[in-house]
């Protein structure tokens, strides 16, 4: 047998085996989800779960389906998402130049070190009462809180990215006399992009968390407020359905990030799939 034929047949056998294994694994995962839902249903129907805290699984899922067809639901989703999105845009606009400056200039880095290191670990929700005081349960309040929460994780990544810009690459750009625009587009951006994406991913999940808190406790409109309202009227299926919906929203946001990182970062080690 020739070596190439051998390599080929090995690769084929292994990959089909792997595909089968992956399929089996996803079946296992699906099975667990179905099992948990069934167990929940049985336990709540037979009264083994305290009815004061648990509606039945089918009630929750049916309510979720009917919510998906209601305008209230999508308005709430829109309110939560828009606050998170506006906050993230502000984070991008502030975080990018500041992160770059800190990563590239020692003067800026040393000057801001103590201030930022003190501000960073402060939980964003600690500011909730203050911003409620200033703006009441409004979009501004939510956006401010989201920005305060999501700024640091994004900026930290930009700083890492800016430090990664190594002088060899910059020397290369200078020696080939690349224009400023091309240097930015072909060297700065590709280096920063993976870091920026990581930062945005973390920032986005924090943004949703902070927005939900602002709604749940601060009383701004959105999914968090719907959860609080359902809780106040003891409408457990709706409350659970909204909690589930926040989870689905989180999954969707993660999915979007996966989708856009593939084409944007195809060259980056994190995206390379090994050829066997």
């Amino acid at each position: 047998m020739s070596a190439s034929a051998f390599g080929f047949s090995l690769g084929k056998a292994v990959s089909s085996q792997r595909r089968r294994a992956r399929f089996a694994e996803s079946m296992w995962g699906l099975g667990t989800v179905v099992f948990v839902l069934l167990l929940w249903e049985i336990l709540s129907r037979t009264g083994m779960l305290p009815t004061i805290a648990f509606p039945s699984a089918s009630d929750v899922l049916l309510r979720l389906v009917s919510l998906l067809a209601s305008a209230t639901f999508w308005t709430a989703v829109g309110n939560t998402l828009s606050a998170a999105a506006i906050g993230l845009v502000i984070v991008l606009v502030i975080g990018l130049p500041f992160g770059m400056a800190i990563g590239r200039s020692r003067w800026v880095e040393r000057s801001t070190l103590l201030t930022f290191e003190f501000l960073k670990p402060i939980p964003p929700v600690a500011l909730l009462p203050l911003v409620l005081l200033f703006w009441g349960p409004s979009l501004t309040m939510k956006v401010f809180l989201v920005t305060m929460g999501a700024l640091w994780p994004f900026m930290v990544q930009v700083v890492y990215g800016a430090r990664e810009l190594d002088s060899t690459q910059l020397d290369l750009a200078r020696s080939y006399r690349l224009s400023r625009w091309r240097t930015i587009r072909q060297i700065f951006l590709p280096t920063l992009l993976p870091f920026g994406m990581t930062g945005m991913r973390v920032a986005a999940s924090i943004a949703v968390i902070v927005a939900v808190v602002a709604e749940l406790i601060g009383g701004a409109t959105g999914m968090g407020q719907e959860i609080a309202m359902a809780q106040n009227s003891a409408d457990l299926p709706t409350m659970y359905a909204y909690i589930f919906a926040t989870g689905l929203l989180g999954l969707a946001i993660n999915g979007v990030f996966n989708l856009i990182s593939k084409p944007l970062l195809f060259w980056h080690p994190s995206q390379r799939t090994k050829e066997h």
Binding site: W28, G29, T32, L216, M223, A228, I243, G250, L251, N254
Partner: peptide, 29 residues
């Protein structure tokens, strides 16, 4: 490997829920 495959989707979903959203459930319990 098997446990991981079985639990992965469930874990991914649960961790996607913003943790403060479970406050009402904890309060009821």
């Amino acid at each position: 490997r098997r446990l991981n495959a079985a639990l992965d989707p469930l874990i991914q979903f649960l961790r996607a829920i913003p943790p403060p959203a479970i406050l009402p459930i904890a309060l009821l319990l």
